[in-house]
């Protein structure tokens, strides 16, 4: 990315959404517990196809990468994840509805 052409910098800020903070916290906690390293996080983000990288939001990329690292670490399996994601999606329409706690 360094050195590519791009538009002007828009110096605006935001509040982070709760789900983004949770992704951040899960990254901090699982890496502190030795399940993966910052390098592992970056590897999975950098392995993305350029069009995925462009189209996903910042924390979308993170959740994708943390998940990949946790599966590789054996924290849970792809099947367990798929089953849980289906369960979560059935709970309702919005993040607030589906997040349970």
């Amino acid at each position: 990315m360094g050195g590519l052409d791009a538009g002007p910098v828009v110096p605006e800020d935001q509040d982070f959404a709760l789900w983004e903070k949770r992704v951040d916290a899960l990254m901090v906690l699982t890496s502190a517990k030795g399940l993966f390293t910052v390098d592992g996080l970056r590897r999975c983000v950098e392995d993305m196809a350029p069009e995925d990288y462009e189209n996903l939001g910042y924390y979308d990329r993170w959740v994708s990468s943390v998940n990949q690292n946790l599966i590789e670490a054996g924290s849970y399996s792809l099947e367990e994840l798929a089953r849980k994601m289906e369960q979560v999606a059935r709970r309702g329409e919005t993040y607030g509805d589906c997040t349970g706690s």
């Binding site: 959404a17 709760l18 789900w19 939001g57 959740v63 994708s64 849970y76 994840l81 919005t94 607030g96």
Partner: peptide
Amino acid sequence: YRKDQDAKLTYWQTMEIAMRELLIEKGVV
């Protein structure tokens, strides 16, 4: 305020919830 809480659940938010619940169920966090 951001609309994330009340907007339609995205694929990646679904993954965050699932990941978090699995990690809690398994006693990782």
